[in-house]
Structures are given as C-alpha cells and as structure tokens.
Write a protein that binds this DNA or RNA. Structure first.
Lengths: 190, 190, 190, 190
DNA sequence: AATGAATGAGGTTTCATTCAT
DNA sequence: TATGAATGAAACCTCATTCAT
C-alpha cells in the first residue's frame, strides 16, 4: 500500500495541491449545487480542513472568482491567438459556453452586488472584447452599433435565459434561440 | 374567566385577513431584503404567528408565487381590457416593470430550479401573450417570427440584465439598451 | 412511567421554565467555569436548544445581567427594609458576598467595557447606596468623606482581590484583610 | 544553488533576536488588543512563524509572564539602587504604573487562576518589597501594620479598579482615589 | 532551528419547521 | 384555528496546536 489513505497534515508542500483541489471541488460543487453550496462541503470534497479553505480564499467570492479565473485565462489565450475578424465569434462562443457551464457564475454575479465590479470580471471582459469586436464590425460580422459594454449586456441576457431554464430543459436550445432573436450572426457562432 | 388576556385567536374569520397581511408583508420584504428574507421576519411583519404562515403557504415558493400572482392579475386585466394591436406593447411594458421592481422575482426563479415551471407563471404568461402578440404581429408592431415562447425568452433576458446589474447601476437604462439590441420596437414600449 | 425522560418541544408553556432553567444553569456555569463559558454549554446544562437561549437572551451580557439581577433584587429589598444606620453595613456585606460568590461578575464587568454602564449595574448600585451611606455617615459608622461612587471603587477593589486570588486560596480571608486595610468598620460588617 | 530564494532560516543565531521580537510584539499586542489576542497575530507581528513562538513560549502564560518579566527587572533595579526610606514609594509608584499600562496584566492574572502563584510574580513582588517596606515603616512613611503580603493585596485592589473602569474612563483618577481611600501616603506616591 | 500551512475542534449565530397550548 | 416558543441542524468562522519541509 504505497499510498496512505489519510495522510494527515502533509505540510506546507501540500499548499499548492490543496489550492488546486479546493478550486476543483469548488468548480464541481458550484456547478452541481449552485453558488450557495456550503463552504464546508467544498472543503470536505477537496479533502482539506475548513481552515485551509479560509487561508486560501478568505471569502466565498474570492473562491468563486478564482474558479472562473481559469475561464478568463482561456479567453485571454483565444484573444491573443486569433487576430482575424473571426476572433469575436470565437470569444463569444466560448463566453456563452462558460456561462452555460457555470450557472453558479450567475449567482455569483448576483451575490457580488456591491463588490468592485472588476472583481467579477466585467472589466476584464470589456478589455478582452474591445479589439476583436472592432475587427468583426469592420468585417461586417457584427452590428456596427454594438459597444463592448453591449457585449456584457448580451452575456447577461444569456445569463437570464440560463438561469430561468427549468432543470430538465434544453438550455443550449434556449440560449441559441434567444441569441437568434438578437442577431443571427451571434447565433451562428454558437 | 370571561375576558381572555390575549385576544389572539380571532377565529376562522381572521384567515383571509391574515393571508392578505402575509402577502403584503412578503411583497415588501422580498423587495427590501430579497427572496431569502427569513420567513419569520415575514410572519412578524404581517403580525401573525409562524404557524399561520405555514398554514397558508407551505413553502417559500408558494408564498412567492402568490405574491407575484397579483402581478399576473394586473396583466390579465390589461389583456382583457385592451383589444387593439397595442395590447402587446402594454403587456410587455408591464411585464418588464414587474421584473425590474421585483428583483426577488429573479431570485425566486433562480431558486425554483426544479419546480414545475408552470408554478412560476410561465404557462400563464404564454396564455396571456398569445393573442396580443398575434395582433401586434398582424399590425407590424412585432416581429412576425416571434412565438409566445420567445416572449418568455425575452423576459428571461431582461432577468439576466437586472440580475447582473451592480447595486448602484441604472437598471432601467441597462434593460432599455438590452431590449434595444433585440428590437427597437420593444424598447419603445418601455 | 409518568415522566417521559425527553419530552421534546413542550410548547410555549415551557417558556417560563426554560428561562428559569437557563438562568439557573448560567449561574452555575458562570460560577464554575467563568464568564466565558460556552453558551452552548449553558444551553445543554439547561436542557434546552441553543435557539431557545438566543430567544431569551440575545447576548451573553443579557444573560449575565439577568443572572445577577437577582442579586440586585435582594439588595433592593435590604435597602427598603432597613431604615437605620446599619443599613449600609448590611448592604455592603451582601455586596461583598455576591462579589465573592460570582467571580464571573468580575469578568462580566471586564467584558462589558463599553456597554452602557447602567447595564452592568453600576448606576443601580449608586442609587442603592446613596441614602444608607448618608445615614451611616451621620451615625459615624462610615467615613464622612466617602461618596457613593467611592462605594463602587470599594467594590472594585474587592473584585481585584478576588480575581487575583489563586484557586485554592482563602478568598474570604483575603477580602477581609483588604477591606481592613481600607477601614476597620467595613471589615467588621463582613 | 548558492543563493536560496527565501533566506528564511537564519540558523541558531536568530533565536535570540526572534525571542526579543516576539516579546516586543506581545507587549504591544497585549496592550492594544488585550490578553486574549491570537497568538498567530503576535507571531505575525514579530515576523516569525508560529512554530517559533511555540518553541520559545509553550503557552500563552509563559509568554505573558516573560513580557511582564521586564517590568520586574526595572523594579529590581529600583529596589537595588534606592536604599532610603523612599524606596517603597518609588516601587509602589512603578508597580501601579505597570498595572495601569498593562491592562492585559490584569487579564493574565485573572486567567492564570490555578497556575502556581509564583508564576505570576507574586513571590517576586514579595521579595522585592520586603526590605523597602520595612524601611518605610521605620521612617513612618508606611502603615506599621502592613505586611509585604498586604502590598500584594493593595496591588490587587488596584487591579480591580482598573479592570472595572469603563472604556472611556479616567483610569488614573479612579486608581488615585481608590488608593487615597486606603492611605493618603500611598496616593501621594503616585 | 525556522517556517507557515494544515488540522479540526469548538464557538456563535441563524432559521426552517414542528407542535403544545 | 392561531400563536409563538422550542428544536436542532447547519452554516460560518476562528484559533491553538502540530508537523513536513
């Protein structure tokens, strides 16, 4: 038995692993049980004590933000790698995917309320979409009247559709139709 | 002992009054403190015992549904009184207003999750909008491709914008712009 | 078996009993374990749920104050019944007794800190001692320079001696000697 | 790898520095936040790990005792340097000052409870005051009935006054009046 | 010898729900 | 039928203490 089942207190070296395990557990539980899932459940699922969770993430929002931070990282990469007019569509598609997958994201945003908006990523998204949107507009692939802030609104509208979807419903179909109502080009990207 | 010290139990006659008082208190507290307000607070504000609240509304959702039921009543009235092509715009405007005013509504919908969707009024809205939408479409006041189910989607999109609005933000402006992105005619109605 | 061992939820009728049981338990545990004893321990000892404790006494200070309220009641009685010059000595003796018995009282006072002073009884003691002190002074049984506020200081000095007494020490002897250092007449009363 | 990234472990030489830093931090935090301040806060303020704190001071009481040890050192010096009948007054003044400044001292004494009394310095104080008290008594500067143990009682009485002082109160004035009640000569020394 | 992360017990507090009266 | 106290299961958060590195 080379791997002991309950290695108590693996020391500071475990910090990075623990952090990753917490983020992983949080991602899963946020997705399964919603943003309000007990932090103790996350700690348990991650196999760490509650104190560790508090050390790494002093508040629920800190944790949630980090969970979604990964998403931003991928979006950043997409924005950096794709310089053509399609970049906007790619980003939009990914953003919608993340929004669908992380319904907890909606609740986090709801809950964040009076927190600095940058915390919940709005500003990051704005920066992310600015140039791709301009390029898409120049190429006639996006409505010329849209601002980057409108892209946020679009995402929020997608939120709404997802959030209001009954559990068994086909979320993707609903989102697609909703986006279609706004602009067929947006729906095509999905 | 002819004069009870605490004339508490006013008998069955009080039931209707209590019900109304609870609904009224719930409406206020949902608006002020959000959907998650303690039920005991609602009971207290209504001046009734907690048991009464449970008698009338076995669950928070039952209570919330009834609270918003009144909104539907007004919408019903609007639908009944206005037979012209403008009816759709009137209904839409009212629906958006209710959605904005009752942010708790958003949370309720989020929370309802796996409850029968009809519970949260979707079916009622469908029935409500069916004929007015048709009339508006016939008069060129609404996109001919829209179905009544699309109207629900539209409302959900408005949900999203409201839900994602930071605390101090101008919710109405955001909603208006969002609706504008979909169709200028919808925005005009607001 | 006429008396079930664990009668769960005895209903509102139990409120008064519960309140008394909580106060009783608190008095015992404060005396045994100090002011910082866990509230949950008090609830357990009283045989009630934690919620009940919170309903009756929203804060530790509320509970402590009520526990010591009884003491004041007895002092009030003494002050009311004894109109002679000995009244001061009687009150002083009782006050010292209570102070000795309730070391938690010291800690409560320590902990109260910035709470309204009336809460922790200082003002009550002032009012209680005013007239008896005057009578005792008139009869030459108390130092004429003492004010009622000085009586509080005297009590606090007794606090200090009690608080600093090692566990096994003869608290009473220490207090007596301390009081003797101040004024033999005060010590005689003990 | 000649240049370690984190020059953390400075080796045995750091032990003395660490000890001093911990004592310094403890003195400040005890004064600012009270005796119950988290040990982790002290470690942090001292810039050391928590383990180091435990190595040097196995318990909070050990730490507190050492913190106040310095006070004793000064008292020792006073006792050694002043051979006249005023020595008692000087020592008394210093003792009262330390007691006022370190309200945490009061709490420590309260908390020590069942620890060996010598730990909290009683015995040291006894030894310290023995000869100065005798000299003061011989010179008529102190009550001839006082024993050195009475001096401890006097200090405890001062404790009580300090401990019972409301947060905003003028502690010094209270202490002065209290001491005056005992003996004007003691108050003069302050 | 120092670090500082991990542990986990334990305290406080809050409510949804029940139920004696 | 109404009352509102009682229940008790969590949830949150905080440290004292340990221990791998």
């Amino acid at each position: 038995m080379p791997a002991p089942h309950h290695p108590r207190n693996r020391g500071p070296a475990a910090a990075a692993d623990n952090r990753a395990a917490i983020l992983d557990a949080a991602r899963r539980l946020f997705a399964r049980d919603g943003y309000r899932v007990p932090l103790s459940a996350i700690a348990r699922a991650a196999g760490v004590g509650q104190g560790v969770l508090y050390r790494h993430f002093p508040s629920r929002l800190d944790l949630a933000y980090e969970v979604f931070e990964d998403n931003f990282a991928v979006l950043d990469q997409t924005a950096a790698q794709s310089a053509g007019p399609d970049c906007f569509a790619l980003l939009w598609r990914q953003l919608v995917e993340y929004t669908i997958d992380s319904t907890a994201f909606v609740e986090m945003v709801l809950d964040a309320g009076d927190e600095p908006p940058a915390r919940v990523g709005a500003e990051r998204l704005l920066g992310l979409f600015a140039r791709p949107l301009a390029r898409a507009q120049a190429a006639g692939l996006a409505d010329p009247s849209w601002t980057t802030r409108d892209v946020l609104l679009l995402q929020h509208m997608v939120y709404g559709v997802i959030a209001a979807s009954p559990v068994g419903a086909d979320v993707r179909a609903g989102v697609r139709r909703a986006v279609e109502l706004i602009d067929p080009r947006l729906a095509e990207a999905l």
